[in-house]
Amino acid sequence: MITSLTSLFKLAASGLSANQAYLDVVSNNIANANTPGFKSSHALFSEALDDAAELPDELDPRRYLGVRVADVSPSLSQGTLSPSDSPWHMAIDGSGCFQVRLPDGTLAYTRDGRFSTSASRQLVTVDGYLLEPSVTLPEEAEAFHVNPDGTILAEIQDEEGGRERIEVGLVTIMGFAAAERLNHIGQNLYTATPESGPAMPLRPDGQPWGEVVSQAVESSNTELVEAMTELVSAQRAYAISARVLQTFDDMAAEASNLKR
């Protein structure tokens, strides 16, 4: 009897914790509705059932384990591109990510292309991480231009006083076989996982993953109306789990009243 009551509490708790995780994901989406390059995530539940044969019979309450979070994956849909005044703001039209190197040496990937120049004239992200491979801009250049393939051209004065465009670097767009399986490490950054596969400079068919749009910013792909609907739905489901737990607790109290 006690084992069964404990399993009822575990069952109700599964609903509370899964919906808590769901609420966290949705709140994060809403909080980042204005973060450039942000990709909203979606949690998906799966029914949890203990189908182990050792249970004495199939109606045993221990069979029912409630729910668990089966999947949290980012939605990779394109965010809207809006123009920017900064010469170093870039956005990706298509799939793929910018590749940056973190201070500890690991490679990370982001869609947030609001780059700027560091004191050492290198291109860095809003958090100061270097693009990889790094791009150093020549001091004498007067103007820059970023091509759709990511090459950066600098205009410099040649010996005759005319202007010349020379290539000074390349912003690479890397992509993944299974980009939804990237690991979100915060700050709008992702790292590769065994499931996502390694970063690749080109699609398997030899085509580029996307194009660099210069002087543009990709907005967050959070759909606020959808996110608010999910928020309400997660709160309701949380309340229902709490109600189920309350009912089970009342039953446990009744059971303990048997002994006088």
């Binding site: 069952l11 539940f45 029914e47 729910v67 309701r236 789990s241 189920v244």
Partner: peptide, 24 residues
């Protein structure tokens, strides 16, 4: 009777907690 009620409650709780489960 108590056992039977508890068993049915487990099934009901399981069902209600899966109100947001895709394909449930």
């Amino acid at each position: 009777g108590m056992t039977a009620a508890m068993w049915l409650q487990a099934r009901l709780g399981h069902d209600m907690i899966n109100a947001n489960t895709i394909g449930y």
